[in-house]
Amino acid sequence: MTAFTATVEVRLKRGVLDPEAETTARALERLGFELEELRSADRFEVDIDAESADAARERATEMAERLLANPTIHDYEVGVEERRA
């Protein structure tokens, strides 16, 4: 078994309204920053022991499918890295 950290980034699909991001962008503008657009995402880091990076990726992908993301509104990306003690 190898120790991995899988990262699952969950973000709203393009075209789905993100009122929290819009509010955050407006707050940044009030602080004097110039910006065109702001998107936010949730990032989950999951420590997994697995036989291979592919196995870790598969497990993290299933986590995204079954809980971390809602397919109606979200897209997600999974990354896997070996975890050093």
């Binding site: 789905v16 309204l17 993100d18 009122p19 929290e20 819009e22 509010t23 809602n70 109606t72 509104i73």
Partner: peptide, 15 residues
């Protein structure tokens, strides 16, 4: 969320 009904209820437009 439990797939009893389609779609999702998410953050109000007003936030």
């Amino acid at each position: 969320e439990a797939s009893l009904t389609p779609g999702a209820f998410t953050t109000n437009e007003s936030a």
